[in-house]
Amino acid sequence: MTKEELKNLKVAKSVDARGTACPGPLLAAKKAIGDIESGEVLEILSADEGTKNDIPRWCEKVGHQFLGYFDEDSYSRLFLIKG
């Protein structure tokens, strides 16, 4: 997905994990995913570089669909659909 498409997604929940390093963003995502329904979009804000690799692997393993990410000044915004 392009940055524009990601920006226009209807996000059901956004979790701000910029204040934690690995594995904090993953733990935050894991907690937040319980609050949304299957098919809804979860957004994760992370300042941890490794998260960009970790979240797709997590999605792959537990059955969510990773949509992509884009970078802001000092952090990244990652998007996925709950499986």
Binding site: C22, P23, L26, L27, A29, K30, D54, R57, W58, K61, V62
Partner: peptide
């Protein structure tokens, strides 16, 4: 502990 947490978060 870090690896344990990551694994647990991945079910």
């Amino acid at each position: 502990m870090i690896i344990a947490l990551a694994a647990a978060a991945m079910d």
